[in-house]
Design a binder for these strands. Structure first.
Length: 423
RNA sequence: GGAGGGGUGGCCGAGCGGUUGAUGGCGGCGGUCUUGAAAACCGCAGUCCGCCUCACGGCGGGCCGUGGGUUCGAAUCCCACCCCCUCCGCCA
């Protein structure tokens, strides 16, 4: 959420930022509602001040002067009615204002290149040579099926399309990847957390999923809980409504959770394999940091994610997301892609973003920079480190051998219980 | 699921419907004292919104689990909901 003060004081700046995102925003209505709200509030508060004053007086003169008491009481009854009217008017205006504010995306960071959409993203660097094959590399859905480690049919039998079952060394490989990545991040200072995968609506709102992306979320209507689409959602809200002490920041967390996505908008796309599924595991990094450090923290988080790609020894590249392709909550984002030779594409395995104070404001997470000063919003950052199915795809396809077997990346060997090859 | 108890400021804990943002204690911060520390003493300290000020700050309003209601006035009375604790039952 953007600060209403910012919108009020620098509407042109906000308008320009939204234009960079190619987003239509009802700024005029927001400004008008803000004006209206303050006008109504002013009147209501004046009346309340008057009522407070008189009520105190009444307590004292009730018995001393009955006539005066009755007259004032009658007047105050009317004042009370008027206050109630104003209060309900304020509530209405605020509700509408909040609705609009919650739909405004974050402001792009000034360092983000301009662009209309995905086609204007730029590749910052590519590391590692795509492996050359003496045979035609197979896509992971064929490898997985032949090796008996991914069972698509039974996944569909259980839950429908875009569901799958990992079996034997397939399940083991995923578990090895998760354990290795969690160990890696915790060794680099991230504290592991295991949050709920079902959260309240207000938690979704705090992370920016609601109200805009309602359609992409699974929901338990009876309990009014939502299944998380990423660990970013609960972790953003861990310190919801709290004021963190001066020495608390920076906070680094890492969490592995299941992620649930309805993929309504991508219906029909990537239906083969496990590239785009309704349920998957993801290891997620998350930071709460002092505002002035978030730029550098973003680069470090990207480095953390990138190091995983290097250690896996699979070619990767870093994509700079342009203003028109930024996610709703993000001010600046890098994507990380692994090369999958079987399906012949770069797969987004990580998205690393600085959300500035956008999520902190929505979730009302604050910190006190030093004792006895006004609390302020920290900046939050999130980044996958990494998403499991796509990392599995890249590993399986990159490490495949002519006989259809798959080597285990060296870095994972300690996690595979002595298995070096899946065959 | 049933029965009972409870939710007040960072923590503990008071609060006849009317100067109570809220007694007291602990913790925190600043000071006095001390070579230093402790102890003792003095003082300061919540948060949100709005307005005024370049700013330091000032003024007004809201906030005693949440939301309604009664009243001139509610932390205090009424209703609903949420959460926590204890016991019983049930399932692991």
């Amino acid at each position: 959420m953007l600060s209403i003060q910012l919108i009020r004081e620098h509407p042109d700046q906000v308008r320009a930022a939204m234009a960079l995102r190619h987003t239509e925003t009802p700024l005029e209505e927001i400004l008008a509602l803000d004006e209206e709200r303050r006008k109504l509030l002013h009147e209501a508060e004046d009346l309340r001040a008057r009522r407070n004053e008189v009520s105190r007086e009444l307590g004292r003169t009730r018995e001393a002067n009955p006539q005066a008491f009755e007259a004032l009481r009658a007047e105050m009854r009317q004042v009370g009615d008027r206050i109630r009217e104003l209060e309900s008017a304020v509530a209405q205006v605020e509700e509408r204002l909040e609705q609009l504010l919650l739909l405004l995306p974050n402001l792009p960071d000034p360092s983000v290149p301009e662009g209309a959409g995905e086609e204007d993203n730029s590749i910052l660097r590519t590391e590692g040579e795509p492996r050359s094959f003496a045979f035609t590399p197979l896509p992971h859905w064929e490898l997985g099926e032949r090796l008996g480690i991914i069972d698509f049919e039974r996944g569909v039998k259980l839950s429908g399309s875009r569901f799958y079952v990992l079996k034997g060394l397939g399940a083991r490989l995923q578990r090895a990847l998760i354990a290795w990545m969690l160990d890696f991040h915790t060794a680099r200072g991230y504290t592991e957390v295991y949050p709920p995968a079902l959260v309240k609506g207000e938690v979704m709102r705090g992370a920016g999923q609601l109200p805009k992306f309602f359609d992409n979320l699974y929901r338990d209507a009876e309990e009014d809980l939502f299944l998380i689409p990423t660990a970013e959602v609960p972790v953003t809200n861990l310190y919801r409504d709290e004021i963190l002490s001066p020495e608390a920041l920076p906070i680094y967390h890492v969490a592995c959770t299941p992620c649930f996505r309805r993929e309504k908008v991508s219906a029909g796309r990537d239906v083969r394999g496990i590239k785009r599924v309704h349920q998957f595991e993801k290891v997620e990094m998350y930071k709460f940091v002092a505002p002035e450090t978030s730029g550098a923290e973003l680069e470090r988080m990207l480095a953390d994610a990138e190091e995983l790609c290097r250690l896996l020894e699979v070619p990767h590249r870093v994509v700079q997301i342009c203003t028109g392709d930024l996610g709703f909550s993000a001010a600046k984002t890098y994507d990380l892609e692994l090369w999958a030779p079987g399906c012949g594409e770069w797969l987004e395995v990580s998205s690393v973003s600085n959300c500035a104070d956008f999520q902190a404001r929505r979730a009302n997470v604050r910190f006190r920079p030093e004792p006895n000063v006004r609390p302020q919003f920290p900046h939050t950052l999130n980044g996958s480190g990494l998403a499991l199915p796509r990392t599995m795809i890249a590993v399986l396809e990159h490490y495949q051998q002519e006989d259809g077997s798959v080597r285990i990346p060296p870095v994972l060997l300690p996690y595979m219980g002595g298995v070096g090859v899946i065959k």
